[in-house]
């Protein structure tokens, strides 16, 4: 586990300190007196999160671009399933398919499985190595291109800090 010995980059520490401070501020509705406790709490959270950090790092810029993409497509996902639920003839054609993953195991794969269940027509059922079982609400449509696009986007959000990350 010499990865844990990696240098801690200060940008990561600073951005996390800011994130935890914002969460504390929101939880306490911005009460000034709360920082007496909030300061140490944020510090503890920071130490814990740096000590326990996974080998992947977040690319904040990509995450920022991902937010509108996710909001829009999850809205479409909701509208799509609502339309099928309300429709008198209930147009669904469920199917269980296997999808070979390009993403490395760990956080990137888990993120993909979690996100896809909120996007139109896909439900991440089971992860086995590089093979993902997906339940489709309607297997008649083109789901592959959407999945590939999502996979590429998730891959850009998580980068492995180790040097063996060769995928673009």
């Amino acid at each position: 586990m010499n990865k844990a010995r990696q240098e801690i980059d200060w940008w990561t520490v600073l951005s996390r300190a800011m994130l935890f401070s914002i969460i504390w501020w929101a939880l306490t509705d911005g009460a000034d007196g709360s920082w007496l406790i909030g300061g140490p709490v944020v510090l503890c959270a920071l130490v814990a999160s740096v000590a326990l950090r996974p080998k992947e790092g977040i690319v904040w810029r990509e995450l920022l671009f991902f937010v509108p993409f996710f909001l829009w497509h999850s809205l479409i996902g909701g509208v799509d399933v609502a339309r099928r639920a309300f429709h008198p003839r209930m147009p669904i054609a469920p199917e269980l398919v296997e999808y070979p993953l390009q993403l490395p195991p760990g956080l990137p794969q888990v993120t993909l499985v979690n996100i896809m269940s909120l996007l139109p027509g896909t439900l991440g059922v089971e992860l086995e190595g590089q093979m993902l079982k997906i339940h489709l609400l309607d297997g008649r449509g083109d789901y592959l291109s959407g999945l590939k696009r999502l996979e590429r986007r998730v891959g850009r959000i998580w980068v492995e800090s180790a040097d063996d990350f060769s995928r673009g």
Binding site: V81, V125, H135, L137
Partner: peptide, 24 residues
């Protein structure tokens, strides 16, 4: 989400309805 939960034919399709519709 609730209509889907009641109408959809199996647990997988019901999960689609519940997860996506309720979160939106």
């Amino acid at each position: 989400g609730t209509i889907g939960l009641l109408r959809f034919p199996d647990v997988y399709t019901r999960l689609h309805a519940l997860t996506k519709a309720d979160n939106v």
